[in-house]
């Protein structure tokens, strides 16, 4: 695992010229991907607003995470449980260590409400995971509902639809994709 510390939190909030939403959102998504690959879980959670959710629906036709099965449907409290578990010395499945590589692209700004400070962005991702001499691949679409805050862009909801989300899982997903 690369131990170098990426200054993700600060960079994620760095201002661009304030007009180029496309570039600003792209930079934000790249930073989030980097945070995941660097396993900076607290920084990952801090990318979300106080009421933010990370949501991976069970099926692509779902329109809300409320009252329906989800693979992940986590507010900051549940994310904190997940982070605390993997950091516990007796999280047995954390040995062997594992690594991921995320690529994010095809970023499309669906909405840019300057008045409300809300942005909806769609992108494509690919995650390769390596654990115990085996690779797994997960790929699909992110849909970020972003909010402009005094700290920079923050996520009100991140929806993750994996093209192989309904398939058979060989082992589980220990952390966010």
């Amino acid at each position: 695992m690369a131990k170098e510390k990426t200054k993700t939190k600060k960079k994620a909030t760095a201002k661009t010229n304030g007009v180029d939403t496309q570039r600003e959102v792209e930079q934000f998504l790249y930073r989030q991907a980097e945070i995941l690959d660097a396993k900076q879980w607290a920084d990952f959670i801090d990318l979300f607003t106080a009421d933010g959710h990370y949501w991976m629906p069970a099926t692509p036709d779902q329109t809300t995470g409320e009252g329906v099965p989800s693979i992940f449907y986590e507010d900051r409290d549940l994310m904190t449980v997940r982070m605390t578990r993997v950091g516990h010395p007796h999280a047995w499945s954390q040995a062997p260590a594992w690594g991921t590589s995320h690529l994010v692209s095809n970023v499309v700004i669906e909405q840019d409400d300057k008045k409300k400070g809300e942005i909806v962005a769609r992108s494509r991702f690919h995650m390769m995971e390596f654990r115990r001499d085996a690779s797994r691949h997960f790929a699909g679409t992110y849909r970020h509902h972003l909010r402009r805050t005094s700290d920079g862009l923050r996520i009100r909801q991140q929806r993750v639809d994996m093209v192989n989300g309904e398939g058979v899982y060989d082992y589980v997903l220990q952390i966010w994709v």
Binding site: V81, W92, S93, V172
Partner: peptide, 11 residues
């Protein structure tokens, strides 16, 4: 769910 924090250690 496939993101279970419980069965991760069982499996």
């Amino acid at each position: 769910s496939p993101a279970t924090m419980v069965n991760a250690d069982d499996l």
